[in-house]
Simulated assay, not measured.
Amino acid sequence: MNKLLTALALAGLTLATTGHAQTADPKTEWAAKVVALQQGPELDRLVDQLTESSAQDLVANWGPKLDANVPKAKQAKATEELNAELKNFAVDIKQVISSKVGKIGTDAMVPAYAERFTVDELKQLAAFFESPAIKKYQAAAPELGNIFVQKLLEAARPEVAARAKQFNEAATKIVGSAPPAGTGKPAAKK
């Protein structure tokens, strides 16, 4: 969907610049091009992260309420129903956030780039984002990021588990009961 938005934004920019070539500010045109060129896999990941964050806020709020208000015998069914609602929420929120990308790019980012960079610098940025190496990097970035996160979690896991064990021992002394097994491990990133 973001690729469609990017294509539509670029088409709109092309129509706007050809229709107003004599009156348009070249700096604004180049800033718009740079903003459009940046919209790709990294922006898609940002939209996904914002969507996930919104869903996590709901889970954090409703998880304890589920435990407190729904009898144990009905919790599995209630969890299934909540997960279905949460999935619908995430789909809707992703669409909402994605629909704002083009407008924010045009209304906020184009003027911000035009204010901070000269026309020559904007041309250089555009050439940078159009280069085959950057396009290849943008395509590989999600996989490379996942490799980094996986290796980081693997490297930190023993120390995090040891520290979680220390915390659990101290918390047991304070609260008086042990936590469920398996707590304190770093969560795997999706």
Rank of each mutant, 00 (worst) to 15 (best):
Y137P: 10
I93C: 05
Y113L: 08
S98A: 14
E121W: 03
K87G: 00
K135H: 13
K3T: 13
T14P: 00
L5V: 12
V70M: 03
H20Q: 10
R157Q: 15
E169H: 06
A21Q: 05
E154R: 09
P132E: 15
V101S: 02
K27A: 02
E52L: 05
P26A: 01
A78Y: 05
P132D: 15
W30C: 01
A68C: 05
I134M: 13
T6W: 00
E80A: 12
A16T: 05
F167K: 05
L144W: 15
G176K: 03
G102Y: 03
Q75F: 04
G12V: 01
L50A: 04
D67T: 11
K136E: 15
T51N: 01
L50M: 14
T18H: 08
A24D: 06
L125I: 04
A155M: 13
K173I: 04
P71F: 02
P179V: 07
D107I: 01
V35W: 00
M1S: 15
V96Q: 14
E52N: 05
L4M: 10
E143G: 06
N88A: 14
W62A: 06
T51V: 03
H20S: 13
P111I: 02
K185C: 10
K123Y: 03
V70T: 09
L46R: 09
D107P: 02
F129S: 07
P186G: 11
A108H: 05
A68D: 11
A161C: 04
Q150V: 12
S131K: 07
T28S: 02
V149P: 00
P111F: 00
I147P: 08
E115R: 10
G63D: 14
Q166P: 05
I93N: 05
Q75H: 03
E80Y: 09
L10S: 02
L46C: 04
K65E: 15
D57A: 07
E154W: 04
A76M: 09
E81H: 00
A7P: 07
A127E: 15
Q49Y: 14
P186C: 09
A170K: 12
D120C: 01
Q38W: 02
A141I: 10
V119D: 03
Q49K: 12
P158S: 10
G182P: 09
E115P: 01
V91A: 05
Q39V: 12
E143M: 07
D25R: 00
E115S: 13
Q56F: 14
K185S: 15
A31Y: 03
I97A: 02
V101I: 14
A24H: 00
N88P: 04
A11I: 06
V70D: 05
K151H: 14
R45K: 11
A90N: 07
E115Q: 14
